[in-house]
């Protein structure tokens, strides 16, 4: 699948994001990496121009409570409702429910084995093939973890 891995927020560390990107490549996916410090508008624009099916957001600096909702909202109004969004990085347990309610389908903490992310993507693929809703703007009923 075509996957965009993006780093919203201002922190300058993208080691984690790059490790994930490379692991997904090794799992057979086409991974587009955006680089550091992207604004929500820029990320949505990249997802559009690259026609990605999946968007992975990597965050270390608390971007999850302001930037992730913004990105999700913008995807929905940009005709990108069927893009599947997952998040990774330092995200407190208490904030997970909020992300799930937004339509984020998986939240991976630091140290998650990359095989777990690959399994999530397989599940997404089979759900999509079965016509089940997994996009950011679709029924948020199902999430991976």
């Amino acid at each position: 699948m075509r996957i965009v891995i993006a780093k919203p927020g201002l922190d300058g560390h993208d080691r984690g994001a790059k490790v994930v990107a490379r692991a997904l490549r090794d799992g057979g996916h086409d991974v587009i990496y955006t680089g550091l410090r992207k604004t929500p508008d820029e990320i949505v624009r990249i997802v559009n121009d690259e026609d990605a099916e999946i968007l992975g957001l990597s965050t270390l600096s608390g971007a999850h409570d302001s930037l992730i909702p913004k990105i999700c909202q913008k995807l929905k109004i940009s005709d990108l409702s069927n893009v599947v969004v997952f998040a990774g990085g330092i995200i407190p347990d208490r904030d997970r429910a909020d992300l799930h309610n937004l339509g984020v389908r998986a939240v991976f903490g630091p140290g998650t084995p990359t095989s777990d992310i690959l399994h999530f993507l397989e599940e997404v693929k089979s759900r999509k093939n079965n016509g089940q809703e997994v996009g950011i703007g679709q029924d948020p009923g199902w999430h991976w973890n």
Partner: peptide
Amino acid sequence: VSGGSFLADRVRMDQADMREDVFVRS
């Protein structure tokens, strides 16, 4: 080996992500 790819050229193209008159496809 894996059939996957790591596409990161656009990282180096500053104008790629905002301007209406630029379109970058990896």
